[in-house]
Design a protein around this nucleic acid. Structure first.
Length: 585
RNA sequence: CGGGGCGUGGCGCAGUCGGGUAGCGCACCCGGCUGGGGGCCGGGCGGUCGGAGGUUCAAAUCCUCUCGCCCCGACCA
């Protein structure tokens, strides 16, 4: 499911070529002190962005070219599937958000206008677009519709970080589909999935599509588009063959069973003085973690819960939350009151299931385990689920690298990723409360079935930097580079070389390439080369005194650093040929 | 919101422990040399040390409060 480029054709609209002299292009020699992520460091150093405040960035003219190329690709591919661009306000009346119960969310910026009317700043636009749909779409004849916009969104992030990767104000492409029923939604969803594959391929990213969390509110399906990067905040689990891929928030796997040996006919007590952790217990018993059971006490609204996973696993917060709702860890005093022992010696045997809900991870269904005996310093061996204690079984564990994919496609690897997009079957989550309904051919009223689909253009750009850079700077994929060709002029603009470089820029532009000509006066050649490497356009052409009068012209590929020398005669066509060769791989 | 770190010319930093006239590199300005990988020589401009209050003869340095930014965690596109 991953893309490796291709589709490198420059996106419309053609935005022209630049002479660099006099342009605002604030490069930086040193890494900014507060930047950690590669994309953060390089986007600042290459003069693409400047920070205003935490999570608030200004995009420079040259940075904007990249963003606009990403957006142009998005527009082409959205239009191709028949989606229609519109634009909605960033500021909304609070009442609409109250209708769906989303007024007052922590990340929501809220304000009042001069008349004291409560307003919110857009985190997203489901409410607004559904409000319009409710007024305009009445009949099955009006459906399906797909509407999209590229618009500023604001979220009061608790922790902005990593430059443009996690910010409080950002541009997002979001589309919304309106359909008569689930099969129709499925078609809209698949159309978006195809568009997204083309978009991320054209942007030159390596990416995965993974199953994602639909949240506790339901929704019938969702996928996220993930660009692998160590700067990523998310983690996906993926099989070697790639047929299984999911966000770790819902990833499942087949745990690898250890050699259990024969179980004793009944649990046997043994003393474990001073043992309080799985690591200590493993060392003490000489058993691998997979033969130990870890008991975790949680407190949900409905009461205490004993969650049991194997020693090598962790209780997965979200998975357990699906079962028990909001919860917290039990206090030590509560644990002692309910179990008669400290957290280091807990276990399910003998626990009153009517007072304490017991949930065991499904990996415990086979084998026999060492558990706490609910007496300090005492454990039990040979504990068997179903024989020695009763528990609900469910998948409540985190996935571990090396476990088997559930579809049998091999061992799981965990990959850090940047989320660059998502597609989500909303169903009637918004159409119901906002009254978006249509009449079918029999005059029956139904709620409109919706989907929503997002992409963060700046994240696409930052992910491209994360995936494409070297020690000298950015290595843009051809599809979204700020320019296709970077001409380094060594010498004055008013010289034979200068005039040649200018003419070459014109020729290349006429062939459909976007060119930046570094005609800045009084800069050392070395500075121009260094900054060209930093900016990372796919091709660099050097025009200097060696070039004229007879050539050759030196052309260098940024990615491979390969230099080729081409004759002056037909140079523009030859450069275009090189560019096409790069862009199609 | 919990934990940690940092705020000193435009940028990167030293000076803070052990109070005593604010320093370095780069950038910038002027002159010259240079001109294919952030070049060289000479001469300059520029900060009152995030902010407020306090201690002291004296505060970048000590104390209190406060603002901002970064990183880890929790949370999220």
């Amino acid at each position: 499911m991953s893309g490796d480029g291709g589709w490198g054709m420059p996106a419309a609209p053609y935005r022209g070529s630049w002479r660099l002299a006099g342009r605002f292009w604030p490069t930086v020699r040193d890494d900014p002190a507060d930047a950690e992520a590669v994309s953060h460091r390089l986007s600042v150093r290459a003069g693409l962005v400047r920070q205003l405040a935490a999570g608030l960035y200004t995009v420079t003219p040259i940075g904007l070219r990249v963003i606009q190329r990403v957006e142009a690709i998005i527009r082409e591919e959205m239009d191709r599937i028949g989606a229609q661009e519109l634009l909605m306000p960033v500021m909304h009346p609070a009442e609409i958000w109250e209708t769906t119960g989303r007024y007052g969310l922590a990340e929501q910026f809220r304000l009042e206008d001069r008349g004291g009317r409560r307003m919110v700043l857009a985190m997203t636009h489901e409410e607004i677009i559904t409000w319009h749909a409710a007024r305009e779409l009445r009949s099955y004849r009006d459906l399906p519709q797909s509407w999209y916009q590229i618009q500023t969104k604001l979220r009061d992030e608790p922790r902005p970080k990593s430059g443009m990767l996690r910010v409080r104000e950002f541009t997002m492409k979001d589309s919304y589909s309106f359909d008569v029923d689930e099969p129709a939604l499925e078609r809209s969803y698949e159309a978006h999935a195809e568009a997204y594959a083309r978009i991320f391929d054209r942007a030159g990213l390596a990416w995965y599509r993974v199953e994602s969390d639909v949240g506790m509110m339901g929704g019938s399906g969702a996928h996220e588009y993930m660009a692998p990067s160590t700067a990523g905040e998310d983690m996906i689990a993926r099989s070697a063959a790639g047929t299984y891929a999911a966000n770790v928030e819902l990833a499942v796997s087949v745990a690898v069973d250890p050699e259990f040996g024969d179980a004793p006919t009944a649990p046997e007590e043994f003393a474990t003085p001073g043992i309080g952790t799985i690591v200590e217990l493993g060392a003490f018993t000489g058993l691998p973690p997979a033969r130990l059971a870890k008991s975790v006490v949680l407190v949900a609204d409905a009461g205490p819960v004993l969650a049991i996973v194997r020693g090598e696993h962790q209780v997965h917060e979200k998975k357990i939350a699906y079962l028990i709702g909001a919860h917290r860890a039990a206090h030590p005093g509560e644990v002692r009151e309910w179990f008669g022992a400290d957290p280091g010696s807990l276990g399910p045997v003998g626990v009153d299931g009517s007072a304490i809900r017991i949930i065991a991870d499904s990996s415990l269904a086979t084998g026999h385990y060492v558990t706490g005996a609910n007496r300090d310093g005492v454990h039990l061996r040979g504990v068997v689920l179903g024989r020695d204690f009763v528990a609900e079984t469910a998948d409540i564990r985190t996935v571990l690298a090396g476990e088997e994919a559930v579809d049998g496609s091999g061992p799981i690897e965990l990959v850090p990723v940047i989320e660059i997009g998502n597609i989500f079957k909303l169903g009637t989550k918004y159409s119901e409360p906002l009254g978006a309904r249509y009449l079918d051919e029999h005059g029956q009223e139904h709620p409109i079935i919706m989907g929503s689909y997002g992409i963060g253009p700046a994240r696409v750009a930052m992910a491209a930097i994360e995936q494409g850079h070297d020690e000298d700077g950015i290595v843009w994929p051809p599809g979204i580079a700020p320019f296709d060709v970077h001409i380094v002029l060594i010498g004055d603009a008013d010289s034979d070389q200068g005039r040649y470089a200018d003419a070459l820029m014109t020729d290349l532009s006429d062939l459909g390439l976007e060119v930046v000509l570094d005609d800045r006066p009084a800069l050392r050649p070395g500075e121009k080369f260094v900054e060209a490497d930093l900016l990372g356009c796919p091709l660099r052409v050097t025009v200097g005194k060696r070039t004229l009068p007879d050539g050759p012209l030196e052309v260098r590929m940024r990615r491979t650093r390969e230099t080729s020398e081409i004759p002056l005669d037909g140079a523009a066509e030859a450069i275009r040929g090189l560019w096409l060769g790069m862009a199609s791989h």
